[in-house]
Amino acid sequence: MALPPQLKSIQHHLRTAQEHEKRDPVVAYYCRLYAMQTGMKLDSKSPECRKFLVKLMDQLETMKKELSDNESVTQEVVGNAHIENYALKMFLYADNEDRSGRFHKNMIKSFYTASLLLDVLCVFGELSEENVQHRKYARWKATYIHNCLKNGETPL
């Protein structure tokens, strides 16, 4: 289903959900939950957004049933730890590649995905200052290295 332009800012979180459907359904579930909560704040009144959000809610309810025996979905504190660990694993992989001078598309994507998953952590409450800083750094690094590679420059 096409994403209404008003909800454009959740498109990357929805894409991350899709990419993790098989690899890690818990990550996919929380990415969609974040997209749902954010989407409702952005626009839940226009017919096109309501239609989109109702579909997304249907999908979330189905996933919740399918994952009903998974503690990461049934217990918020376990889910929080799962998403935070996954985000930091992505961050550390990208950071290690960066510090070793290995610049490539995969590490750019890891930095960016880490920043998106740190957004997703907001479904559990306010982000810690450390996670706010990690998110800012990961997003900046992803953009910076992407631009360097595009312009044929070596990142510093």
Binding site: M40, K45, V54, M57, E61, K64, T74, E76, G79
Partner: peptide, 27 residues
């Protein structure tokens, strides 16, 4: 007509909020 449209939109929005709360309640 406008107010009917608004009420429908508001009811559907409430329904979504209710479903979201239910989804989160079970966590």
């Amino acid at each position: 007509m406008g107010s009917v449209g608004t009420s429908v939109a508001s009811a559907e929005q409430d329904e979504l909020s209710h479903r979201l709360a239910k989804l989160r309640d079970q966590m």
